[in-house]
């Protein structure tokens, strides 16, 4: 009931949800405030070379980091419908169109297939700047088809999550994507094909409570926020302050729900290494 506080930011404040990928020549790190050449940050997998801060990046960047040279995008033409004719400050379909225009994306998840350090695999990656990376029917369907593709081609699947949770404008349809994606991942599991879930900053709500937590390998990047309920909601409910480091990847690993945290520069070689040992 309370997954949307973070998404609120996504809906109303355009600046906060922007990708952190800098567009100019120079980049000022939001964490250590150092000014660095953008090219140097890019060459460092969008991690600040000074303080190791992992910038929030999108599917374009992850695909570039992970795939060897080229990859093929799958199911690129799926778009959200508006089955409930949902209207808030504007009709949901208008919001979709406007967001597509401003982001150049079709929805909050893209699927691509290719080789990662020589290992063939399929990757679904979420984009937070598309309505807070919210999960609607398109996300569920993309995962469903990615699983089918992996089964048909005997490949491993990786899902990179970055999401405020379910997409309110699709209401119960969105809720059912938790079940849909989990069912498809169960099918992948029955085929004994590996599923790697990378939870990036932030992964919350119904996404965490479905496919993000169902990996054979649940992994994350340093400092990523991972949780079910948003921190504000928890604070309002229990009426006390949250412990330091609460809902960080480091804490989630400590409490037993992450297999490991990996530096973005080592991500590619590490997952390829694991898959080579298994397949």
């Amino acid at each position: 009931m309370t997954w949307f506080k973070r998404e609120t930011q996504g809906i109303f404040t355009q600046t906060e949800e922007k990708k952190e990928v800098p567009e100019g020549l120079w980049f000022k790190c939001g964490s250590c405030k150092t000014t660095i050449l953008t090219d140097d940050v890019h060459a460092n997998s969008w991690v600040c070379p000074k303080c190791d801060y992992h910038l929030r990046i999108g599917s374009d960047e992850y695909f570039e980091i992970l795939f060897d040279n080229k990859y093929t995008e799958l199911d690129a033409n799926l778009e959200a419908a508006n089955p409930l004719e949902f209207v808030d400050s504007k009709p949901y379909s208008d919001r979709i169109k406007a967001t597509q225009k401003s982001t150049g994306l079709k929805d909050s998840m893209r699927t691509a297939t290719g080789k990662v350090d020589g290992v063939p695999m399929t990757i679904c990656c979420m984009d937070f700047n598309f309505i807070g990376g919210s999960m609607g029917a398109v996300v569920g369907e993309k995962i469903a088809r990615a699983v089918d593709h992996c089964i048909a081609n005997r490949q491993a699947l990786m899902i990179i999550s970055k999401s405020g949770g379910a997409r309110m404008m699709e209401a119960a349809f969105s809720l059912m994507q938790m079940a849909k994606s989990s069912a498809k991942l169960a099918q992948l599991g029955r085929e004994k094909l590996p599923y790697i879930s990378l939870m990036t900053d932030p992964t919350t709500g119904g996404v965490t409570a479905s496919y993000a937590m169902l990996g054979d390998f649940n992994i994350s990047e340093p400092g990523a926020m991972i949780g079910f309920a948003g921190p504000r909601v928890i604070k309002e409910t229990i009426k006390r302050d949250l412990p330091k480091g609460f809902q960080t990847a480091e804490m989630v690993q400590e409490t037993g729900f992450l297999d490991f945290i990996v530096h973005r520069k080592e991500l590619k070689t590490k997952i390829a290494h694991i898959l080579r040992m298994l397949m």
């Binding site: 938790m178 409570a209 079910f228 928890i234 409910t237 229990i238 949250l242 409490t255």
Partner: peptide
Amino acid sequence: AFPGIEGEERGQAEAIA
């Protein structure tokens, strides 16, 4: 589901998933 500190620490999301 209850949004609390202990619930998060014991994996509310994982349990539901």
